Amino acid sequence: MQTQYTLDDLAAEAPVIGGKPARLAVIGNPISHSKSPQMQQAALDYARIEASYIRVLAEHGNFPSVVARLQELGFIGCNVTVPYKTEAYALSTPGDPLAMVTQAVNTLAFNTDGTITGFNTDGMGFARAIRECFSVDLRDLKIVLLGACGGAGTALAHTCALQHCERLTLVNRPRPELARLRDALALSFVDEERLAGSAERLTAFGFDHPALRDYIGEADLIVNATALGLKPTDPSPISSSLISAHHLVYDLQTHDDAFQMQARDLGARVENGLSMLLHQGALAFERWFGKTPSIAAMRRALEKA
């Protein structure tokens, strides 16, 4: 079985894997590392749905053509990962508030009338993952979000704001989107019952800002939503000198990387992105089929992947 497919591979017909036609996919670039097929296939098999789930590599510039071809082949929908979440939004009608405010989606549902509905399950998947991993809710945490302006980072930022977390520090390379994101979230941090105002509870910095050290030092949770860690040679997004044993550390990468290893060495509680992948994937399954999948079956598949 191929590990991934291209638009050329899909020119004739949908692949058939284990006697089951491909009807769902994850699209990205790169994509060979994705664990979504193992997880979603376990959910399909448990539910006795005669379909298979594949990886599709979309070359830059042909993402819309890939989506159109999947529709032609009778696919039910697909997941979307970097760098195509904003392109996916442009091809779809938003199906939930988070998709609308972030203008990025990670789940597409192909409708029988030819239209496409886009969902963003990253945010709620993240919230459920933090609760599962650390036994605490977002609303009770001071959070530093690294890579806040990326597709996943923006979804997580809005989710933290909607959950009214104690404090949110947005960190990104200096760009206009960072200030716009901070301004868009500001109203969620105005609370008459808290002594701190929105300016104290919501901040935004570049990675090299001198004040960042203090905000990270006071944080409960550090989240890596940058692309760093995707490649084995990638460095950590922040210096190890900023991490302490009291920190909770969550990395969206689903494998060990420099950020996780240095945080673990310093005594922090560290979790990778498998739990978020699990919960956002379960939510995607619900959008496609209208029912909850077997979380246990999906978890077992991820543990074996």
Rank of each mutant, 00 (worst) to 15 (best):
E132V: 13
D96Y: 06
I243F: 03
K291H: 13
T107Q: 01
G61M: 05
D140S: 15
L57S: 12
A199H: 14
D96N: 09
K35S: 08
A305S: 13
Y215W: 10
D251I: 02
E13N: 12
D191A: 14
N106I: 00
G267T: 05
Q41D: 05
F205H: 00
L145Q: 05
L10Y: 02
L91F: 11
H60L: 14
I222E: 03
G147R: 10
Y89A: 05
I130C: 09
H247I: 07
S188D: 14
E192Q: 14
Q103H: 06
R201Q: 11
E303A: 10
E271Y: 11
A258T: 06
A104H: 02
F126C: 11
R131P: 12
A186G: 09
L274I: 11
P64H: 07
T112K: 08
A284K: 02
C149D: 10
G197Y: 12
E192H: 15
V171W: 00
T3F: 15
Q262E: 13
M39W: 06
V249T: 04
M261Q: 12
D208F: 04
H209D: 12
A127T: 03
V105M: 02
Q71K: 07
A47C: 08
Y5L: 14
I222M: 04
A68G: 11
G290M: 06
P293L: 07
L24G: 03
S36A: 10
A58F: 10
P293K: 03
G147W: 03
E286H: 08
G61T: 05
L248G: 04
L44V: 03
D137R: 15
G147N: 06
R23A: 07
G290C: 09
Y46H: 15
I243S: 01
F63S: 06
M124H: 12
K142A: 15
D234F: 11
K85H: 04
E200Q: 14
A184P: 00
A104W: 01
A263M: 05
N272Y: 01
I222G: 00
I116E: 03
A104E: 00
D214R: 11
G77W: 09
T115C: 02
L242C: 08
T115H: 08
G150D: 07
L108E: 04
G19L: 12
E271V: 10
T107R: 03
G217M: 05
T115E: 04
A12R: 12
P235F: 03
G147M: 05
G290N: 09
S32V: 12
L185A: 03
T6N: 10
P94H: 07
L242W: 11
I31S: 08
G151Y: 05
A12L: 12
G267R: 01
D220R: 09
E193T: 14
S92D: 05
S52H: 04
I17N: 10
V56L: 07
S236C: 07
C165P: 15
R128E: 14
L138W: 09
D234K: 12
S36K: 02
S244K: 13
V80D: 01
M1E: 13
A47F: 01
P235E: 01
S135F: 14
N120P: 13
G18P: 08
F134P: 08
A43S: 08
P15E: 08
